[in-house]
Design a protein around this nucleic acid. Structure first.
Lengths: 226, 226
DNA sequence: AGGTGGGCGGTACCTAGTACCATCATTACG
DNA sequence: CGTAATGATGGTACTAGGTACCGCCCACCT
């Protein structure tokens, strides 16, 4: 807060705005780090103090998001593993949706620049790795589980990206609902359905070798607790 | 062929050898483009004439491989689509396997260097895109086909990567056979065939508002049918 | 007032990658 | 056989991302 009562927008934010504007106006390669710093009214040093690279300026804070995903996955038991996965992936989607227009501007820019596309893809791979490790641990050391976990993690991330891109292109009215539907499809791929999906009621049984009566009892008890 | 009968290895090859050796000895970041050119006995200009970047020197020629994959996919009718996909992905795997030790050295190096990992991931994404487009066209414009195609392409590529990594780590005796098995699993995922009986025991209940007793009965009956 | 720590700016430096030009060997051609 | 064209090479100079370091200033604390 300054004497006149105005608040100086922090340098971090000014840099982001400057970068988005310049990348839109001149393109990514045609914009130098000096250009961004100048427009933000800071020195070049300050830019690289806040962001690891020129690209990083317009990207979300993936480290924080990754940590949030990891945390959500960590707080789950075996029975709620799929719920945790769905929640975690929704976390990521909603983070983008909250950004609103900024996410769409980034999408426009990254669509045009190969270097930025590659970078985004690399970020996605990190989320996929988290999911793969979580799912693999959940599935245990059974033969073929490693491949299964890898396939499922890839499917989860692909479902997310599919819905996200639809929202970015303004093709998705209700991205959260679409994600739920996409995730249901993913889960159904990897499970045997006990009943075709009805009106929002779906029960799934995965790889259960126990007596049907026992399983039914587990389900009943789990539902009563919920 | 020179006067004495010896053959001068082309500069391209010498550069690759020099790069692999230096990346092994000092690491990727600690090796400059000059180092590589010097050891290869050529000028720095020549390096960048043959390879777009320092990283490119140790990577396979993805452009050619992508073209080969594209071509294989193109020569297929609707009823041989899955065969084409399997063939195409095997094409990629075998290309790596033919490289033998060089592929394993690259794996060791890329595993340690984030920039190289990201680059490899970006390459994989290009293959995935090819498969996605092909599968999407094959599936047609049915509702949900776009997501389905995306999921399947991701699964195909993941299956490949899974087997490839196993081979790189010397965990796979017969990578081609493992790829076939993995691809069979992928296909079975998307064709609703019953899975080989698993031994795990996990029950999941999602979003079910019905009476617990009813749900339990549904589960029990479904399991008895299976 | 004086000290102190954190944010900031400037300078110098390293290196990837590009542009341009001079050189040289090979080959084609008169 | 001499010469011109072609293509690969190597050197030099330049741009720009990213790092290291240092001095400055401002806010806050004692």
């Amino acid at each position: 807060m300054r004497e006149d009562g105005s608040v100086t927008t922090p340098a971090r934010e000014r840099l982001v705005d400057a970068a988005f504007d310049l990348f839109d106006e001149r393109g990514f390669e045609q914009t130098t780090a000096d250009d961004i710093a100048d427009r933000a009214g800071v020195g070049r040093t300050t830019l690289f103090r806040h962001y690891r690279s020129k690209e990083d300026v317009i990207f979300p804070d993936h480290d924080r998001l990754l940590a949030a995903v990891k945390e959500r996955l960590a707080t789950s038991s075996a029975d709620t593993a799929l719920v945790a996965v769905t929640d975690a992936v929704r976390l990521v989607l909603l983070r983008y949706v909250e950004e609103g227009d900024r996410a769409r501007r980034r999408y426009r820019i990254t669509s045009r620049v190969a270097a930025l596309r590659d970078r985004e893809i690399a970020s996605v791979a990190r989320y996929q790795r988290l999911f793969r490790e979580f799912i693999a641990e959940w599935m245990g050391p059974a033969p073929g589980a490693a491949l299964r976990a890898e396939l499922m993690a890839a499917a989860v991330v692909s479902a997310h990206n599919h819905v996200l891109r639809r929202w970015l292109r303004r093709d998705a009215e209700d991205p959260a609902a679409e994600l739920d539907a996409a995730m249901a499809q993913v889960v159904s791929l990897f499970t045997r359905q006990a009943e075709p999906a009805g009106t929002g009621s779906t029960v799934l049984v995965l790889h259960d070798a126990r007596d049907p009566e026992t399983v039914a009892a587990v389900v009943r008890d789990a539902l009563r607790q919920a």
